[in-house]
Amino acid sequence: MTTVTGARHGVAFWLQLGFTLLVCMLLVAPMLLSLLAGVTENYLVGIESGLTTRWIAEVLRGYSDTILLSLQVALACLAATLVLGVPVAYVLARRGNWLTRLFEELLTMPIAVPGLATALALIITYGGVGEFRRSWLFILVGHVLFTLPFMVRSVLAVMSAVDLRTLEEGAASLGAGFARRFFTIVLPNSLPGILSGSLMVVTLSIGEFNLTWLLHTPLTKTLPVGLADSYASLRIEIGSAYTLIFFVMVIPLLLLLQALARFGQPPR
């Protein structure tokens, strides 16, 4: 299909190529510049001022607690969405009636509603419970609300693609009770969906800002909240170094997610 000789391409081709490259530039250039700023001695002088890891070290010194809290929240969020989301997806996959469909719609509400609104609702409801309001669990609840639909959708997609009902009937005919069927048939055959859902949840949780910004307290700052702080109040190099650390954490997850999306097709 593709021709090697440039002369064969029409104007339309070059226009499209140019446009694509332009869009890529617009998307990638700011990120690259920001990353570069994170290792530049002095951003105002420019790259001539020399490269350094000093800013990164400073961020790690000052903000390592936000990084740790982000990881902690993300992992706890993952655990919660697994424990809640996989059974919910299973019920939705096995019992398709108006009730489960209604529930499925309700579940996507936190995606549709702005994060700030969800956060406000949480504060109105639980803000008075001081101990809870001050703990990181408050943030966790927000994250679980926000990410659960992604887990459920992702698992449900795979569960609907394999004929779980018949597989389970086959297993039951061989003597397997519910628990055994769930762990030896349902879970393994839903694994691609569970994996991609997990990566999505972790990625979303680490990067979540809208909700978290309202839910956090000075003692419960996550990485994106810290990032906002540092942008607002510190040198731009520190903010950029912070971004760099964020990228290093999130990019492998995103790549894994892509790989899984490609290989994670449910087995036929």
Binding site: T166, E169, A171, S173, G175, G177, P188, L191
Partner: peptide, 28 residues
């Protein structure tokens, strides 16, 4: 069904995709 000890063969086979042939046969 799991307590009736019946063997069942389905039109759509219902073999477990997460197991190989020997594991499928050995499941019961």
């Amino acid at each position: 069904i799991e307590r009736r000890n019946v063997g069942m063969v389905f039109q759509s086979y219902a073999l477990f995709p997460n197991m190989d042939v020997a594991q499928n046969v050995g499941y019961g």
